[in-house]
Design a protein around this nucleic acid. Structure first.
Lengths: 121, 121
DNA sequence: TGACGACATCACAATATTCAAATATCGTGT
DNA sequence: ACACGATATTTGAATATTGTGATGTCGTCA
């Protein structure tokens, strides 16, 4: 039974939305809806500074939207599974929308280009 | 040239998320997922000042999340139909989640109480 | 018309967010 | 151990967002 005036759902959902409420971060999520990527990919695909890329990823990670995995020198990010029901449904809907019709156009093209033969090298 | 990297979808979706990325505003949306309400309802159900209520509703309205209708002295708010595909899917999923399992607990109870026999009187 | 209630907006201080450049950290190869 | 590349964090200044109280606007009813 919910006790506080604000239920957990609303609290965590607003947290999620706040993280997604930034164009750059949403573009990151959109790219991630196609699969795991490492930091350098976001830098080149989105044309961000290294510092900014890292920080936005940090915000998303803090909000539980993404999770990181280290592989050698590189850190790979992927969408994190959501525990809260509302968050889960929202992220799933978002990913589905992004995966279906490519909402990213040039971002994805740049990404694929940079993913060429040997990415991250 | 300006890499116009961001598609319309991403831009409008981040706008939506930004508006939803606040606990108070999300509680408003949650209440609205049950139907149309007038300003005084939010005030009492959420325990907000009149000024704050009005401003948060203004933010939501500005973001295209809600729309207003005047009826005599009162102004009624309801969720606005979304044009962009992504926004539409997201808001629908959110409303469905809120409508199903009451994510609001006390907010709704307070609301129903204040909605008694003759609301807004 | 004037008074009142509902709602919107303004003004202000507090707090938070933004970005880029500089700096720090961590893993890898030498 | 050292140097280097990849990523993270800190810094600081500009900007945005927040909530509150005061004020403005609009509609209603007498």
């Amino acid at each position: 039974m919910p006790v506080a005036a604000t239920s957990l759902d609303v609290r965590s959902a607003s947290r999620l939305f706040k993280a997604l409420g930034d164009e750059t971060r949403l573009r990151i999520v959109a790219l991630l809806s196609h699969g795991e990527l490492c930091v350098c990919h976001f830098e080149s695909a989105l044309g961000l500074t290294q510092s900014n890329t890292s920080r936005q990823l940090g915000v998303l990670k803090n909000a539980g939207v993404v999770e990181a995995r280290r592989d050698g020198s590189w850190v790979y990010y992927r969408l994190a599974p959501q525990m809260e029901e509302v968050c889960k449904a929202q992220l799933e809907a978002l990913v589905a929308a992004f995966a279906k019709r490519d909402a990213l156009g040039e971002d994805v093209e740049r990404l694929l280009k940079s993913l060429g033969p040997n990415a991250c090298k």
